Every structure is written in structure tokens, then in C-alpha cells.
Computed example of a mutant assay.
Amino acid sequence: MKIERVRVEIGSLVRGFQYLKLYCFIFRVLLLWFWLELNFWVPLQLDFVHFLNFSLSLSIVMADFQSSTHRERWMFTPQALIEKCHAANQRALRTLEKYGSTRLEVDIDGSLSYPKPQTNARENGDGRHAIPEPLNPNEEKLMRIFYEQKIQEVCGAFGFPHKIQATAIIYFKRFYLNWSVMEHDPKHIMLTCIYTSCKVEEFHVSAEELGKGIQQDHEVILNNEMIVLKSLGFDLIVYAPYRSVDGFLNDMEDFSHALDDGKLKALGEATKLEVDKTMLTDAPLLFPPGQLALAALRRSNEVHKVLDFKRYLESLCSQQNGAHTSHELTKCLSAIDSVVSTLKIPEAKDMRHVDRKLKFCRNPSLQDETKKREKKSKHKSKRTLSQMQEVPPPWT
């Protein structure tokens, strides 16, 4: 009964969010109608495209990035990011020292339970329950990048649109600002973030379908849903660079009417690959999505050379009524490029050692079993070598 009640509450929460999006759409339609009525007898000085953009910008104030929880609560300085990740890592280390394990059991309602405290190995003197070696912050970062790339792979395999992939990755990033990968299994959190993203973005996929598609138990997806929502502070509206890329491409077409459609399409495809790469870095937590999109466009344009990007940036800044100078914007884009250039995507073979440490931290008994197997294998190798030495060579 408790499980069903919690799932109904989660479903009601997400449905409420979807109704809010519907109300915003209705508000847009009503505003457009009101504007048309108001200007029925007045010749419009704006062309129709600019008029639509104007009415749209007025109607989505509630969902505007500048006034969003995304900007208010989930944008950080580089130092703040380092401090949050370090704090999560240190808390997991204290848990490991106190309980002998970092694994937190999660109930369906999001409540947590810690493992039973184990006697410290130093007090035992027998080494049977030696504390496993914890992951350091750099190893945790590698683990997060590895699973963020897995989110992209899973979303690609299911044919999900970019907005679902981007939302899931940002949820994943936000979750692990509050937790260490040693506390919550990133494989399970990854799946729950994808599932939650699908619901928020109104792309219906059941937990059973998602779990079956990648051969995972769908119950772990549902069991982690409330802890993910709580860790996100129920801030489910996410702004990703992909939509901004589409907007800038349309604007570029108006900026330079001589652009070849084929070249512009190639620029768009290359840019989205650049954004995919950007999403695996800390950049989405440091810079607004519009700047991330512009930086990806600039990097792609350096290869495809579709337009004079410097002149385009100057044109953009002139439209913003002095909000940013071209020089300031260029510095921001260069800072983003610097973050993206440091990205190193780990391969599965590079992650074996880190994954082994993670498993030992979450389940220390595996470390004891591994040591026993290694000791047994070493003893067997010595015995075989000894037997070989006792056998006389055939030529004697």
C-alpha cells in the first residue's frame, strides 16, 4: 500500500507539472488573440515573424530562463562546483569509516537507511573488515562522465529526442552535486533520470519498457524516483542548448540571406555533436544554454566556414541593447571552449579499476572474497611451480 501511495503521489506531481505547461500554452494563445484584436484596425509595422517572436517572448515570462530556477539555483562558479563535489566525496568517506560501507538503501518514499556499523579493522587486527579504498574526487568525476555518456547512448538507442537526453543529463549532474557516486549507484540513478525526463517532457515510456530495453530491473528505476526528485529540489524545468541552436540557425538565415541551405544544415548537425560533447562537461552548470549553443556554433563554424561569426556576434549584441558587448560575449565563449577542451571521455577498459573500487566501497564483502580468490590462486600457482620443479627433465 505504501509503495502504491508514493507512486500515485509522484504521478500526481508530474501531471501537475504537465498541466502547468498546458496552462502556459493556453496563456500564449490568449495573449496572441488579444494582441490581434488590439491591432485589428492598426497597421502592424513589424513583419509577421518578428511579431510572433515578440508575442511569444511576452507570453513565456513564467518560463523564461532569466527568471527560472535553473538560473537561480543551478548555476555555479567553478570554485563552488569543486567545493560541492568535494563535500559529497568527504561525506561518503566519513560514512565509509563509520559504517564500513557507503551504500545507502533507498525506500520508495525517498527515505534513506545506513548500513550497520562495522568494527574497524584496526581494532580487529585480523584485516577481515579492512576499510576499502574510497574514490577520490577525480575518479568520481570520471564515473559521472562515463554514465552521462551512457545516458546519451541509451537515449540514442531508444530514439529519444535531444531534449530528453539533455534533461536527463542535467538531472544526473544536479543529483551528484548533492551525493557521491559511492552513496548511490550511478547506473540506477542514470535510468531514473532518463525515466523522469521522459515524463516531464511528455514522451511516454514505462519503467518496464525502459528496464527491458537495457536488461535492467525496472523496480530500481521506480525505487529511486522520489530520492531523485527530492535531490533536484523538484526543480524539473531545464533549459538545454539544443533549442537555442535551432533558434540561432534560424536567425543566421535571416542575418545572411545568401547562406546555402545545405551548408547551414551541415553546420546545424555539426553543432549538435559539439553540444553533445559540451553536455559531458561542467559547462551546463557554469554557463547559460544560449552561450553554450553559441560556443558550439562558433566551433563548428571554424570547420565549415558558413558565415563571418565575428560580425554575427556583433549583430547579436546590437540587438540586445547593450546587455553584453561583443568582446564580453567572445570571452564567455572562449571560456566555454576551454572547459570543453579538457574533456576526456573514459572508455570501459579505463573504468575497470575505478568501478572495482566503487563496488568494494558499496559492498566491502566483495573485497574479502576477491582477496581470498587471489590468495587461493597465488597458492595454487606456487604449488604448480613446485611440482614442475620436482619432475626431472626428459633428457636425464
Rank of each mutant, 00 (worst) to 15 (best):
L46D: 14
F34W: 13
V106A: 06
L36S: 05
I145H: 09
G262T: 13
K359A: 15
R311A: 08
D254V: 08
F146A: 04
K359Y: 14
S231D: 03
Y195R: 03
K230A: 11
V391P: 12
I108Y: 00
D217H: 06
P392Q: 11
F27S: 05
T281M: 12
I345Q: 07
H324E: 13
G11W: 10
L259M: 03
L58I: 09
S180M: 12
V391S: 13
W41K: 01
T196I: 08
Q79M: 15
P186F: 00
P394E: 02
L30V: 15
W74Y: 11
N301R: 09
Y114G: 11
H86L: 12
S334N: 13
Q66V: 14
I237Y: 00
I214E: 00
S338Q: 15
R356A: 03
V154G: 05
L313S: 07
F54S: 15
Q152K: 06
C361E: 01
E253T: 09
V200I: 14
F146C: 10
I60Y: 13
L93G: 01
F158C: 08
C198S: 11
D251P: 01
S111G: 14
T278S: 08
G159M: 10
M143H: 01
K230Q: 12
E183I: 00
N321K: 10
L177R: 01
M143W: 09
M75Q: 11
A87I: 06
D254T: 14
E225M: 03
A207V: 08
H324P: 07
K265W: 10
N39M: 05
F51M: 07
P132Y: 14
P186T: 04
F51C: 09
I108L: 07
